[in-house]
Design a protein around this nucleic acid. Structure first.
Lengths: 220, 220
DNA sequence: TTTTATTTTTAGACAAATCTAAATCACTAA
DNA sequence: TTAGTGATTTAGATTTGTCTAAAAATAAAA
């Protein structure tokens, strides 16, 4: 069985994200930027990860994550996201505070701990950022995209796409501060005209008409 | 401000325990046995801890923990015990499973995390083993000793002494499986004759008369 | 195609924490 | 009081993860 050190685990997680779940190749400099370590250190680490067969590494040409690597990365991501849920739901941390702490917590080695934590949290399927939590076997549940006006009051989600991508519409979104990737929460819904109020990135409130809300797709 | 590495923190915690909270001096071999590392490694670590003024170290003569060292050790102990409470109360771990995991968890650096955890757990004053949890300033609450029949139903505690220490009484205790240091829980109380049923070390059930129960002192 | 710029790797160093083997110190027992 | 035993320290090696500086490979531009 492959075992990774803390540092190796962190690198692999970063690589998984950078490669968009294994779709793209990744360069040394990419990893260096993500991990905030020097390229020289990255080269060394890539050699080690290559020897452990969690990545396929060709000198000077970057790397691809392997199937085994994906599995391990997803385990780490699972731990990280479960701890994020714990920190936000139970300890009342806010989104922006959790990452570093969850990172530390997810290094704790016990398998049993993660199983019990998962159970304690009620087997959550998504973390506070809306990202899916892989199950024990690394499977992730992808979630449906909904237009904002189909959301319930209080729902949170992330803007993933727009139906109407006309320049005018995009300019409007830009103006009000909404963008692909923005985290939103439905603060108010007015039944009679279908307009909604959403909170963007936990700070900015936006009112939008039924038409606009129907054209913004959210991942819940 | 003094900062310690993980390993230094662990050594200091062990030293604190070995020195019985700073009362006794401690030898290199003591630490070696406790930490399961070689004496040579301990010497090196003691030198470092001495340089950081958390212990007073004289080569070949062992060490004494300093006031500063005590404070830091108590911080680590606080974290450890809070995590133990979390593991047992929330994640349903049993006593004997928690130590290693709590050790890992208590290495997580965030101050805020510990404060929030403390709050979430309802500011517990004692860990699942009955050991006191130091507060933020390192103060520990020592607890009163009570005879078993003064305990409420469901109370947990640790046997710390006996009033009647006659050979006959001690032989009786031995026979039923109670001993100084045993962890007990009050399972049942019969009002009319004052007899009680207690669970020892989470496994063995004992019935005892009012007289016997009145002679066993428990730290709650 | 040759030169230049960028990216990546190698080489060598360092800090932390451990080990083994050898040396040194302190106490004890003749 | 001196030799021996056991505890302790030193010396030197190893692993892991990082760094800087320099070399090498690739990519881009003239």
């Amino acid at each position: 069985m492959i075992t990774l050190t803390f540092a190796e685990e962190n690198y692999l997680k970063a690589i998984y994200h950078l490669s968009d779940g294994g779709k793209k190749g990744v360069s040394t400099n990419d990893v260096s930027a993500e991990m905030k370590t020097k390229p020289a250190s990255v080269s060394d680490m890539l050699r080690k990860l290559g020897e452990k067969d969690v990545i396929e590494y060709r000198k000077y040409y970057g790397l691809h994550i392997t199937e085994e690597g994906k599995k391990l990365a997803l385990q780490t991501i699972r731990k990280h996201r479960l701890w994020e849920v714990f920190l936000v739901e139970k300890l009342k941390f806010s989104w922006d505070e959790v990452d570093e702490v969850a990172d530390d917590l997810s290094h704790v080695k016990s398998q049993v701990l993660i199983q019990r934590l998962d159970e304690y949290l009620g087997f959550p399927k998504f973390d506070p950022h809306g990202d899916p939590i892989p199950d024990e076997y690394g499977d992730v549940r992808t979630r449906p995209r909904l237009p904002i006006n189909d959301l319930d009051l209080g729902s949170i989600g992330q803007i993933v796409a727009v139906k109407d991508s006309s320049p005018a519409f995009l300019r409007y979104l830009d103006k009000v501060g909404a963008y692909i990737g923005a985290r939103i929460k439905v603060m108010d819904k007015t039944e009679f005209d279908g307009s909604v109020e959403i909170l963007v990135d936990n700070k900015k409130s936006i009112f939008m008409s039924k038409d606009v809300a129907g054209n913004i797709l959210v991942m819940v």
